[in-house]
């Protein structure tokens, strides 16, 4: 049985590229692009600013929604974030990436606003609820005793090879996945949006959210599992049971 996992191949090739000289390194090109964007922003290039806003605004709003009461407040938080970014660009030293800095500002502002609204009085206890070692997967899927303990009692039924295309071609499937993402607890939604939706590198996600990589993967897997269940529910033609 041949398991083809695209992520493994991708990061292996990334490592190979990373060992070459910087000028041949594709990630160096990306880094140069970011440096160039920062330089243009500092020069007052309006198009660079539009580019920056277009690139991050949706994700900022989506994440801010997890901290505050409603969309309107989330928009205010993100608008305030952009104002701080504008004012701070001259002082930004580039110790973190521009993105890490911007998302950090938003989270700080959103938490502050959320606390002031008394939506979440204690963030730490709220967050720890998702940091415990609860299983991402349902224990009832597995044998609980006997010589097959821990092995599948109810293995997942394979999806056909065209599943990604079918999902992307169906508005109903897209809606089901988006609903599953929006329904995630904030700590899970944050990691899924940053890592899988925005494609932010794991280390940078950890910097933005101030969590460990182990924590990141516990959360990320729970988030992906919930979306997987939504896809499964869509595929078998019934409503999600979550």
């Amino acid at each position: 049985m041949n398991v083809e996992i695209s992520g493994v191949t991708e990061s292996m090739s990334h490592r190979m590229v990373a060992s070459r000289k910087p000028e041949l390194n594709s990630s160096a090109t990306v880094a140069n692009g970011k440096v160039a964007l920062l330089a243009r922003l500092r020069q007052g290039d309006e198009r660079a600013f539009d580019e920056l806003v277009t690139r991050h605004h949706s994700a900022l709003i989506r994440m801010a929604m997890g901290y505050v009461a409603d969309r309107e407040v989330a928009e205010e938080v993100v608008q305030d974030t952009w104002m701080v970014v504008i004012e701070g660009l001259g002082r930004f030293e580039g110790r973190s990436s521009l993105r890490t800095w911007i998302f950090g500002i938003m989270i700080h502002k959103a938490k502050d606003r959320g606390v002031r609204e008394k939506r979440h009085t204690t963030f730490s206890s709220f967050e720890s609820a998702d940091d415990d070692g609860d299983d991402a997967t349902d224990p009832s899927w597995f044998h609980q005793s006997g010589e097959w303990a821990g092995h599948w009692a109810f293995p997942p039924q394979p999806w056909d090879d065209q599943t990604p295309e079918k999902l992307l071609a169906s508005q109903q499937a897209i809606t089901a996945m988006n609903r599953a993402i929006e329904a995630l607890p904030r700590t899970l939604k944050d990691v899924l949006i940053l890592r899988d939706v925005e494609g932010v590198e794991a280390k940078e996600v950890c910097n933005i959210l101030k969590i460990t990589e182990t924590n990141l993967y516990v959360r990320l897997h729970r988030a992906r599992e919930r979306v997987r269940q939504a896809v499964e529910a869509y595929l078998v033609g019934r409503k999600p049971t979550m």
Binding site: V3, I5, S58, R224
Partner: peptide, 22 residues
């Protein structure tokens, strides 16, 4: 199971996004 999680990861990354402006 692992393939399904990989599918979810990949599809979530290319879901159509609403381009929002402030």
């Amino acid at each position: 199971y692992v393939k399904q999680i990989a599918t979810v990861r990949d599809v979530v990354g290319i879901l159509p996004k609403a381009i929002e402006q402030p």
